[in-house]
Design a protein around this nucleic acid. Structure first.
Lengths: 343, 343
DNA sequence: AGTGAAATCGGTAACGTTTGCATTGAATTT
DNA sequence: AAATTCAATGCAAACGTTACCGATTTCACT
């Protein structure tokens, strides 16, 4: 059985008390240089490592932060996590990553598990399914530092980072209009997500500013957030079989954008006839066919900002009451000119 | 400050001792039904959750397993993790996911951190950069259960799961030959990875079986494992600018396959002239252009099998000395017939 | 010589939980 | 009635660490 050396072992071997050893290892001022050297040397020899579990129990601090995202396979989130880690490691924190697969129940379980593992704080992007935030609210009320990113919620007052979803959507839809599209459908995520509504607003404003009448019948919500391909294909089929067939689709969600591309391919639609623009952070969007214009979020930066906010909360001596919601720009990548395809 | 209810709190409130409360909650036979009901009811009321940290300290068990992979953004790994979680949660274990970004140092840090957090076991797929396995070996010798998956190593004797990389490569290369390709280049990952060599062997055997002379000058290794796009583009450019230009490329690594597709696009090669076949687990491979034949690994299943092996190790009463290496089949998806592209 | 301040170290409790052992009281047996 | 059994509960130690409070020694200064 794996049994690492403890402070007690060292104390016993060196005929010292555990407290002296502890202080020597932490370079306490009250310990003589001589003893320190002795202890440090012996600790080195037996490869002593302080036991983080014992420390967590004692200090109620773990120097680790919990991350909760819907899906790791979603590039946006894995990029954001990379951003989080880049800062966290630098500051001496470890990360514990969990995914919810957009299930409200799994989210609750994961969050509670993290809280009890005494993570020092939580970074969370909400699952599409969650509508009851009370479990988070009570943890937050109890003093657990939480920062929301991307899929933020209004119900809890704390630091938040998200993208300028309104503008991102506006610009994408505008680009479609400028390309001559007149009937632009909207394929959206679950309607109670913050990002869904902001992007919907951007879509509507772009239409209005360009004097295009808004038609509710051109909107489809995919409540499973693109986790279920069939749902997306059905929506696309439904839209494109309508009498008043749209000439473009704006997709307001990362995963759904991909599914929409696949649907157009599977349904054999001519890419010339129906343009796509959508949010997408996959690192291969530019290689997809049919190709699309895409709105890319600054996922890595968002992760960095989120974790910095969280560390501010964690390390602050005094309770913080003034919170900020950072909104990041998005990047619009226009659909590439028609491929130079082989005949 | 966040402070959940403890057994002591309950004991105090109910004028009982902590031990009685503990036994009541675990349904100990020595406690009267009456008391049990009382305790359980009160625990429910104050939302008592046992403190996993204290339990870990006491039992030297954490009911959590550590996962170490090179990169979450790599679909293969996020799929494998989903497989791991599906079983782990069912069996009452939690997962702690970390990524190494193919850095040997980060790998060592993460592994040691997990070991000290007293995970009950480790699931690891090695970083491309690692050549010194001593840190793993010593942990394993000390009794930490470890299971390797996908990128396995010979140096440590334990359970392992990987794909039939030989056959996967063989079939892919064979399919290229059947499609009439004669000069097939190989774009490979770092040469000291287990999977690299197995796939190389499959490539060579397929050539030999089809009486194609093996030419070492058609091989390029990307030591950064596709994390550096430029490295791949350079290799592709180099290959295709040769006098004896290949008519196909077999890519023996997931990320590099994607980079290769991108390189062909950026370098403006005619997909008709140069075919690609490669390992790839991205969920959008089928939508890429230029398109390719791809070998898909059973990532989800691999994760499931790996975690089952690990749990066997963890929960076994007696030390296990007979180890198995499972080898999973791969699926070959042939390049789709030429797209019905718009003129 | 006496006082006291450093310097250096040890003892103990505490974090939350479990567990072997001791204790209590009541019920049962002889 | 005394002895024995049994059910129900409490006590204390332990997991590894640190913080507080003392204890001891040395040494300088009056």
């Amino acid at each position: 059985m794996y049994k690492p050396a403890t402070i007690k072992d060292i104390a016993l071997a060196l005929h010292l008390s555990p407290s002296t050893v502890s202080r020597a290892l932490r370079d306490g001022y009250e310990i003589s240089e001589e003893t320190k050297k002795l202890v440090v040397a012996y600790a080195e020899k037996v490869n002593y490592r302080s036991n983080p579990i014992a420390l967590s129990l004692k200090n109620r601090r773990s120097y680790s932060i919990g991350i909760v995202v819907p899906k790791l396979a979603n590039s946006f989130f894995s990029q954001a996590i990379a951003g989080i880690e880049s800062i966290a490691y630098e500051r001496g924190y470890h990360t514990i990553i969990t995914q919810t697969h957009d299930s409200a129940e799994r989210e609750r379980i994961n969050v509670n598990h993290l809280a009890q593992r005494s993570v020092d704080g939580l970074l969370i992007s909400m699952s599409a399914e969650t509508s009851d935030f009370s479990f988070l609210k009570s943890l937050h009320d109890d003093g657990l530092p939480i920062v929301f990113f991307d899929r933020i919620i209004d119900e809890i007052d704390t630091f938040k980072v998200t993208s300028d979803n309104f503008k991102g959507a506006y610009n994408a839809v505008e680009s479609l209009i400028k390309a001559g599209k007149k009937k632009i459908a909207l394929l959206a995520n679950a309607p109670h997500l913050s990002i869904t509504n902001e992007r919907l607003a951007g879509y509507m404003k772009a239409l209005a500013d360009n004097h295009i009448h808004f038609k509710p019948e051109l909107i489809r919500n995919c409540n499973k957030g693109g986790n279920d391909y069939q749902e997306v294909e059905d929506a696309v089929k439904d839209l494109l079989n309508a009498a008043d067939k749209p000439d473009a689709i704006f997709v307001s969600s990362d995963r759904i954008s991909i599914s929409c591309v696949r649907a157009l391919k599977n349904l054999n639609f001519d890419p010339k006839e129906i343009a796509i623009a959508g949010f997408a952070n996959s690192d291969v969007v530019d290689l997809l066919y049919p190709s699309l214009s895409y709105v890319k979020q600054k996922s890595f930066e968002m992760g960095q900002i989120a974790v910095e906010m969280l560390l501010k909360l964690i390390e602050s001596k005094y309770p913080i009451t003034e919170f900020e919601t950072r909104v990041l720009d998005t990047e619009l990548h226009l659909q590439q000119p028609p491929l130079n395809l082989p005949r």
